[in-house]
Simulated scan of single mutants.
Amino acid sequence: MEQYFVKKVIDQSKFVIDDLESYKHIVKVLRHKVGDTIYLVDSTQTLFVAKISEIDNDASNLTVVVDKDERTTTEMPLGVTIACSLSKKDKVEWITQKATELGAKKIIFFDSKYSIMHWKKNVVEKKLMRLQEIAKNAAQQSKRRLIPDVIYLDKLDKLIEEKEATNLVAYEESAKQGEISQLAQAIQEEPTSIMCTFGPEGGFAFDEVEFLNQNGFLSVGLGPRIMRAETAPMYFLSVLSYKYELTVK
């Protein structure tokens, strides 16, 4: 079944979906009828099974009868932030979509010395709206309980204001030197939240890594291979998923 996010708290057995975009997708695109069932996630991240009881095409809304679903949350047990230097438009959108599917709670894009793209102030709001919509659609498709926040920082040093309990910087020179233990050690400590920062296609400048290290970001390698800028965050999220979400029976 499809899942939709609603901005309100669902606290009664009947609920009216009056969001125009959701109404159009449910009624006009997927052509759901009275009696069909969908999932809803409200503003408290609670999942509900919702059966359509009425469709009002004049008012562009639909009424559903809801029942709380007690299944286990799909969210990671720790808050995960990935911070990526700006890449080309299609890569930024791809990172947003896939990071959402893999469980990131926050996605940060920032300018760095070797970034091949730089956003002008007059386009930032429009680009973030587009990325937030991509995150919403990916969260609905992957049955998340929340939509990740997507934010933009025009300077790398502003990352300090976004720090989590544990903070890492993926550094290709660490990988070249054979460093393979720091990431494993960091997640073995089971922090309540974690951030990992990733450089652009050309990598971080040495002084940028030095600045991050001086401000509590630990340099880590991501294995013996050098990855593309858009691949590294997905590797990191997959490692966390294996550590915290998969078990051996």
Rank of each mutant, 00 (worst) to 15 (best):
V239Q: 09
K33S: 15
V220C: 06
A229W: 00
T46F: 08
R145Y: 12
G221W: 01
K113G: 02
V27L: 07
Q45L: 09
E54T: 10
A175C: 13
A104N: 06
L240K: 01
E70S: 15
T37D: 07
Q177P: 01
S60R: 13
L30G: 08
D18I: 05
R228S: 07
P224H: 06
K28P: 06
S115E: 03
S112A: 10
L131F: 12
R71T: 13
N167A: 07
D11A: 14
K155Q: 15
K155F: 13
R225C: 12
K136D: 04
A229T: 09
V239N: 06
Q214T: 11
C84G: 08
I134H: 04
V6S: 11
D18P: 09
N61S: 10
E201N: 05
A139M: 05
K176Y: 12
K120P: 01
T81G: 02
D58G: 10
I95K: 01
F204H: 03
T197V: 15
I26S: 04
I194L: 15
L156W: 02
A83G: 07
E208V: 12
E189M: 05
D58S: 13
Q182Y: 13
L156M: 15
M1H: 08
E173R: 15
F236R: 02
I108V: 13
K158C: 12
L20E: 15
W119K: 10
K105Q: 07
D149Q: 09
D90T: 09
P191N: 04
A170T: 00
S181F: 04
V123S: 13
S87R: 04
S181M: 10
L156D: 02
E164F: 05
D149M: 04
T37H: 08
P148L: 08
A138M: 11
D149K: 08
Q97I: 05
K249P: 15
L86Y: 01
D149L: 03
I55S: 03
L156R: 03
I107K: 01
N137A: 14
V123Y: 10
A50V: 00
D111L: 05
F110D: 01
L86T: 04
E162M: 11
